[in-house]
Nucleic acid binder design. Sequence first.
RNA 1: GGGGCUGUAGGGUAGCUUGGUUCAUCCUUUCUGGUUUGGGACCAGACGACCCCGGUUCGAAUCCGGGCAGCCCCA
Length: 480
Amino acid sequence: MNEENIELPKALTAKKDEDFSKWYNQVLVVSDILDKRFNVKGCFVWRNYGYEIMLNIKKIWDKMFKEQGYQEMYFPLLVPLEYASMNDKWWNSFKDQAFYVKGLNEKKHNYILRPTGEPAIYPMFSLWIRSYRDLPLRVYETVSSFRYETKHTRPLIRDREITVWHEIHTAHATMEESKAEIKNHMRMWDKLWKDLCLVPFKVNKPKEECFPGSVGAVEYYSIMPSGKIMENGSCNNLGQAYAKKFNIKFKKPDGTEDYAWMTCTGNGGRLLAAVISVHGDDHGLVLPPKIAPYQVVIVPIFNNKTKSKVMKVVDSLFNDLKSKGIRVFVDDSDESLGSKLYNWEIKGVPVRLEIGNREVEKGEVTLFRRDLREKTSVKIEDLNVEKVLKEIEEELLSRAQKIFKEKIVEAKNIDELKEVLKDKKVAKVHWCGSTECSEKFKEIEDGVELFGTDIEEESEGKCVICGKKTKTIGYVANTY
RNA sequence: GGGGCUGUAGGGUAGCUUGGUUCAUCCUUUCUGGUUUGGGACCAGACGACCCCGGUUCGAAUCCGGGCAGCCCCA
């Protein structure tokens, strides 16, 4: 039997560094995250394990949003065309990628499936907001968004149905309030990203790339191992533009009327795509403890003679961990030991505890850390799983920080810029800020763009395209 | 946006060039029974497939057209 030529169904054969795309596609399947054999382009089925991870991420944002006083609501997916066309700028950029819907007896397509929340939510804001006393209005919902993507779709990265997508929409009486609101969004995202052991790449979005009609946006990006960057949540300052289009007005204390100042932000499955891509390795998923369906899996090892003795220790350990609020599972199934170990490794369980006769006799457990792929023996009385989980988080975060730093490289001219891109990295350049020059970046290679400018740093330099003096620092990379 | 490739059991594949003894090869999964259990167990047996629509032909997994789906590449 020639083993090299056989692709085992449950095995991960692709190497992350050699063929990221293939690796990514395999991981999604072998670790039971999703099944893409659903015959609609850009749609997939969440499998229980993957969905549980996603819902654990959702739990983090639900908790955060509620603590911060956002009201959870739900708006219909079907949006009447008349709502959709209220903001012409928005509509122009989405009408070519909308799904049009009609009932069997209707002559026209009177509805679209929502590509974003604005046309569903803002007509209602217009009804609800009459007075400054109704402000601020801060709502969120978790829904699907639909986009008729004509390009290559990729599960969790570019889908036609964007699932488990949340979005916050707010309306305020003053610009200052709306700016503070955006700061709050960013604080929440920073915390969420930290819980996922990820490092966001935050940039100011170039004006022309911003949400149609908005004032500006801070975009969160993930740097993927392929060197491409992926939009991963933007904080949009909508100013009064949307309020004007949707007629969202309020009476001020002095009796005059004004339009509301609005913001929105949102994200979804791309957070999981980043988790998988950044932390995963050639042995499968590596899950941050906060979102792992099981933080600990106990694998008992026994034969008929030692079973009761081993299981006694396993049971008491299980109850102990459970009482501490740790998500723990005992795998006492009939599968062979090796197959269990591979399975939990591919699923990225942070900590595995092996307990057999050997351990029981010595009063120990064998502890396996998924991030390091190392086994150590620990006395049961010294076992501190919470501490280990914390260490795993720190390790994952510091790795992500390291990757982040390595991936950003300064380029002083076009040739250097091309080298950086070739090296699958992100180029840090000076940019004069003009649209003409930003268009030139796109000509370097398809998919390449200047995706943002530094939100803090400024320095003297010359635009790498036109040579004009500038202080603005921009970032150029391949994008998903 | 442009170009290319692919579609055969649950998964991975052989066969396609040159249409016909292959009512489709092999591995794996699944199921049944038994033996096992410290890193993907073993033995025996069983189930399971030519993406859809149309065309060419005596005959199509194989050739042609369209659809659907997936994948890759590109200053």
